[in-house]
Amino acid sequence: MEEGGGGGGASGPAAGPGPAMAAAGGGPLGCLHVLWQRDEPAGKIPARRLRRAARLHRRLGPTGKESHALKRLREAANGNDLDTVQQLLEDGADPCAADDKGRTALHFASCNGNDHIVQLLLDHGADPNQRDGLGNTPLHLAACTNHVPVITTLLRGGARVDALDRAGRTPLHLAKSKLNILQEGLSHSLEAVRLEVKQIIQMLREYLDRLGRHEQKEQLDDLCSKLQMTSTKEQVDEVTDLLASFTSLSLQMQKMEKR
């Protein structure tokens, strides 16, 4: 994923997978989100207040020196350089500043699965629901590559679980797409498939937990237990089929709730 380059993971699912965002089977994917407030430590400036101040500053436009710092911030986030990200943020760099494709430092860090940088950016006012030029939020990109710790951090930071990408996809659509890829793929080893299925279960568990769907969450826990007892590809495929049925049912429920 290159800052200002032609390709890149944070371009999102609609643009094709980049090296940092290649999902299982190479298929383009993308989506996930939830509104969940967490208590803010005493004496700490609320992230939403920081974001408001940053928006006001951005309307004036950055100076040449500031533009360079903002580009360095995105590059550092993309390069997993925690120290540089921290220094630039402490020097006042705006974490919501985007490149010409609408990608922020949070998009890059989320795509790369660096939960430490993600948390740092959120603490300094990064917007977890900011969209890039293709409509992808940081959570779309984290979900696209199954970065469960980042997904959790973003959800706790206020990312919306019901946010749609430009193709109208939600996290459940994403899970269903990834399962289809796994079921169609023939080159994956047993351990690799088991790990992918486990990650999807974890991702959906976070999603359902934020929505308060505890009964469905228990069903996922049962599937996870069955997955741990598998020893052959056929047994893993059986769990994958059950999980695919589960996500299909959840999608139907979601459509009914929106009517």
Rank of each mutant, 00 (worst) to 15 (best):
L82E: 08
L195R: 15
V239S: 05
V85W: 07
P46K: 07
Q199G: 02
M21N: 13
T240S: 05
Q202I: 06
M21A: 15
T232S: 15
P171R: 07
K101M: 08
R156F: 12
P171A: 15
A42R: 03
L186R: 08
R49I: 12
C144N: 01
C111G: 15
R59M: 14
C224D: 14
Q119A: 09
R59A: 13
E90I: 03
A47K: 07
R213C: 12
D39V: 14
T170Q: 12
R55N: 10
A24Y: 02
G135D: 05
E191K: 11
A143S: 07
E196T: 06
N146P: 02
P28H: 06
W36Q: 12
P149S: 09
G12A: 01
E40V: 15
F108L: 05
A14N: 09
L195M: 14
V239E: 02
Q216H: 14
A54L: 06
W36L: 13
G157R: 02
L29N: 05
R59V: 11
V118E: 00
G8E: 06
H33W: 11
P62L: 10
H33I: 07
E215G: 00
D222T: 12
K258T: 14
T104S: 09
S245P: 06
D127I: 09
L134I: 08
T153Y: 04
G9F: 02
H68R: 15
L223P: 05
G212L: 09
L242N: 11
L89C: 06
R205M: 13
Q216L: 15
L73A: 08
D165K: 00
L204W: 00
L164G: 05
V85Y: 05
D115T: 12
L89K: 03
K176L: 07
P95T: 00
T240A: 01
I201A: 00
R38M: 13
R58H: 13
Q87T: 12
R59G: 13
S67Q: 07
T104F: 00
Q130V: 05
L223H: 04
G18D: 04
K255S: 13
A10W: 03
V197E: 03
T153G: 05
A126G: 02
A142M: 08
R58N: 11
R156H: 14
K226D: 13
E206W: 01
A97T: 11
H173S: 05
T232Q: 11
G135T: 09
G64Q: 01
H68L: 14
H214Y: 12
H173R: 02
D100Q: 10
V148W: 04
E2S: 12
H173M: 05
